[in-house]
C-alpha cells in the first residue's frame, strides 16, 4: 500500500479542522473496509487518513424527541443487534445483514456505507424509504439534509473533502412504518447488489388505501433513487398484487441500470420489477398484519 499519514481525532470539530487543513488530500476513515481497498486500487490517493472511529459523538443508536438517531459510526453488526432498530426500523437490520460478511459488518459502519456512495450500497434504500435526514459537520457548523439529496453520483456526495457525516435520523412519524428491503446478488453471502430496493407504506385504516408509499432503489442509476411515479401510483390505486406489479413496471422505467459483467441491463430491469413488487407486497402485509407481517 502507498504510504500515508494517520491521525486519530477525538472530536468532530478537531476532525473537521484536520480535514480542512489538509484538504483535499486527507480523508476520514472509520471502519476502513472501503477506504483501504480504494487506496490499494489507486482510486484514491490520500496523503492522510483521519481516524474518526474514536469520536463519541458519532456513536450510538438512540430514540430522541425527533425520532431514531443512528450515529454514523454504528456498525452493521450494531444495527443488526440493536433492540431499538428491531423495534422501530427492522428493515434496516435486514439490509445491514446483507452487507459483506461478518468480518466487514463488524468493522464497516452504516455512515461509511452511505459516504462510499457506490450506487449498489445497501444502507441507503431503507433509510430513504423512511425519509431519513442526515447531519453533516463542516467549517460552517452543522447542517441537516434529506438523505435523498445527499448523493450526487457514483462515489460522490455533498460532503466534499472536508466535511463529515455525523448521524442519520429516521423521523418520529416514520418509526414503525411498514418497510421491506429486498436485494438480489449473485450469491447469498458477500455479494454486491445487482438490485436492491426498499418499500414503505402506511395503510389508511378507514379506506384501506396505501399512503405515503416510498420506493427507493439502489444499483439502478448513478445514485440511489426514489421511484416517485411508482410511489404515486401505489397511493392512487387499490393496494394488491396488480397494483404492486404495475408499480414495479413503472419503477423500472425510472431506472437506468448498467450493462456489465455481473448482469445485463435487461436482466436488471426484470429484477427491478420483481423486487419492487415483492417489497411492496411484503410492506403491505406488514401494515395489514397479514401472514408475512412481522
Amino acid at each position: 500500500m502507498q504510504p500515508f499519514d494517520y491521525v486519530a481525532a477525538d472530536s468532530v470539530e478537531k476532525a473537521v479542522k484536520i480535514l480542512i487543513d489538509n484538504s483535499p488530500s486527507a480523508r476520514p476513515v472509520a471502519g476502513a473496509t472501503d477506504v483501504l481497498n480504494d487506496i490499494r486500487r489507486g482510486l484514491v490517493e490520500p496523503r492522510m487518513l483521519v481516524d474518526i472511529s474514536g469520536i463519541a459523538e458519532l456513536q450510538g443508536i438512540e430514540i430522541t424527541d425527533r425520532g431514531l438517531r443512528i450515529g454514523s459510526l454504528a456498525t452493521h453488526t450494531e444495527i443488526i443487534k440493536s433492540p431499538l432498530i428491531k423495534e422501530h426500523a427492522p428493515a434496516l437490520a435486514d439490509a445491514s445483514l446483507t452487507v459483506g460478511a461478518v468480518q466487514t459488518r463488524n468493522m464497516g459502519t452504516l455512515g461509511g456505507n452511505l459516504v462510499s456512495a457506490v450506487p449498489s450500497l445497501d444502507g441507503a434504500p431503507v433509510l430513504m424509504a423512511l425519509d431519513a435526514l442526515v447531519t453533516i459537520a463542516g467549517s460552517a457548523g452543522r447542517e441537516e439534509v434529506a438523505l435523498r439529496d445527499f448523493f450526487l453520483g457514483p462515489r460522490q456526495t455533498v460532503l466534499g473533502t472536508d466535511r463529515i457525516l455525523v448521524d442519520m435520523l429516521i423521523p418520529k412519524a416514520n418509526l414503525g412504518k411498514a418497510t421491506s428491503f429486498a436485494k438480489f446478488g449473485l450469491r447469498k453471502g458477500q455479494a454486491l447488489a445487482l438490485i436492491n430496493v426498499a418499500a414503505s407504506l402506511h395503510v389508511d385504516a378507514a379506506t384501506g388505501r396505501a399512503a405515503q408509499t416510498r420506493i427507493a432503489l439502489g444499483a439502478v442509476a448513478p445514485k440511489p433513487i426514489h421511484a416517485s411515479e411508482a410511489e404515486a401510483f401505489v397511493d392512487a390505486n387499490a393496494p394488491g398484487e396488480e397494483t404492486f406489479s404495475e408499480a414495479g413496471r413503472i419503477a423500472a422505467t425510472q431506472a437506468s441500470p448498467i450493462d456489465d459483467f455481473r448482469a445485463s441491463a435487461a436482466y436488471r430491469i426484470e429484477l427491478i420489477q420483481v423486487l419492487t413488487r415483492r417489497a411492496l407486497s411484503e410492506a403491505y402485509s406488514q401494515a395489514t398484519g397479514g401472514p408475512e407481517g412481522r
Partner: peptide, 16 residues
C-alpha cells in the same frame, strides 16, 4: 478477533 469480534486483518490498520 479484535476485542472478540472477527475482522479481516488486511482491512484493519495497525493503528486502529
Amino acid at each position: 478477533l479484535l476485542d472478540g469480534m472477527s475482522v479481516n486483518g488486511c482491512l484493519v490498520l495497525a493503528g486502529r
